[in-house]
């Protein structure tokens, strides 16, 4: 073999570079993958301990309404109901208002002002949830108390806080999906003599539907998983909610207050991890929903 043939068939510094790159970047991605796997496995193992080690039936756990760990009553239904209530209420209130704000920004207000809204929404998206919780505690709760009596704590206050928290994120996503509707649609519709409202309601919003729904599911997923902001205003009484302004408790709020007050490995503690498992499963379901909703847009 002459020199050139040797050069062509043997590794060079570039080959070593390539190996280094492949190894470094693969390691990083493998680490992240294993991390996700570890989270799923660890939380599942801890989450089912109540059923496997402490002999509580899953069905009873999910259907009983009595949550008193100190008396071995592990009925998670009140928290499940409350979590879903605050999430759905917040979503139901936020969806139309998000749409209104997003339509105003993209379709009605002059383009110059859009440049002003963008950073503002970004800032609101970045405001920590604790701040929203604190707002709820100092403004919403006393206001509800003044209007309806009672303590003011409860599902309604949590809904308000979650609404404030998810609105910026949902608005930002909705604005993006409205902006993604091709300009030609607007022109074509206007060319047929449609008014702006007709164009908005019959062309733009329907063609951005999948994006808008994705934003709604995304917002509700965040609402379902929010812990501290809700914990600050929900009242934290683990009973079936009797009304919108009665003190109740969500999965997250019970977890937040409970983990520190129970001993690892006891049934009380395991019951809390089972609540965490519900949260995990719900976040997977929300993920699936987002996939289903946004996939329709692709096909």
């Amino acid at each position: 073999m002459d020199d050139l043939q040797k050069q062509l068939t043997q590794p060079s510094p570039e080959s070593h570079q390539e190996w280094t790159g492949k190894i470094i970047s693969s390691l990083a991605i493998i680490l992240i993958g294993s991390l996700v796997l570890a989270i799923l496995v660890f939380l599942t193992i801890k989450g089912i301990a109540l059923f496997t080690d402490n002999g509580i039936s899953i069905w009873r756990f999910l259907s009983q309404t009595d949550w008193q760990p100190s008396h071995q009553h592990y009925g998670a239904l009140p928290m499940i109901v409350t979590s879903f209530s605050v999430t759905i209420l917040a979503g139901v209130v936020a969806l139309p208002l998000t749409l209104v704000v997003a339509v105003a920004i993209t379709e009605i207000l002059p383009k110059k002002m859009t440049g002003l809204f963008q950073p503002l929404i970004e800032l609101l998206v970045g405001v920590p949830s604790v701040v929203y919780g604190y707002l709820g505690l100092t403004i919403i709760v006393p206001e509800l108390q003044r209007l309806f009596g009672g303590t003011g704590f409860g599902i309604l206050a949590a809904t308000g806080v979650l609404f404030l928290m998810i609105l910026p994120t949902m608005t930002s996503m909705t604005v993006d999906s409205l902006n993604a509707v091709p300009k030609q649609y607007r022109q074509a519709s206007a060319g047929l003599g449609a008014t702006r409202w007709q164009t908005i309601s019959r062309v733009i919003v329907p063609s951005a539907r999948d994006g808008i729904l994705t934003a709604a599911v995304f917002g509700m997923a965040r609402a379902f998983g929010e812990a501290l902001a809700v914990q600050m205003v929900i009242g934290n009484t683990a009973v079936m909610p009797k009304g919108l302004i009665e003190s109740s408790a969500t999965l997250t709020s019970v977890l937040t207050t409970g983990i520190g007050n129970s001993v690892m490995g006891t049934a009380d503690n395991n019951a809390l991890w089972s609540l965490a498992l519900i949260l995990l499963i719900m976040s997977l379901i929300f993920n699936l929903l987002i996939h289903l909703v946004s996939k329709k847009g692709v096909a």
């Binding site: 050139l4 043939q5 050069q7 062509l8 068939t9 570039e14 080959s15």
Partner: peptide, 20 residues
Amino acid sequence: NFHDVNINDPKVNVYRVRQR
């Protein structure tokens, strides 16, 4: 074939190939 080496062989040093 380049200098009697089949450079389409995956074992061949592709970086040197592209330099030549």
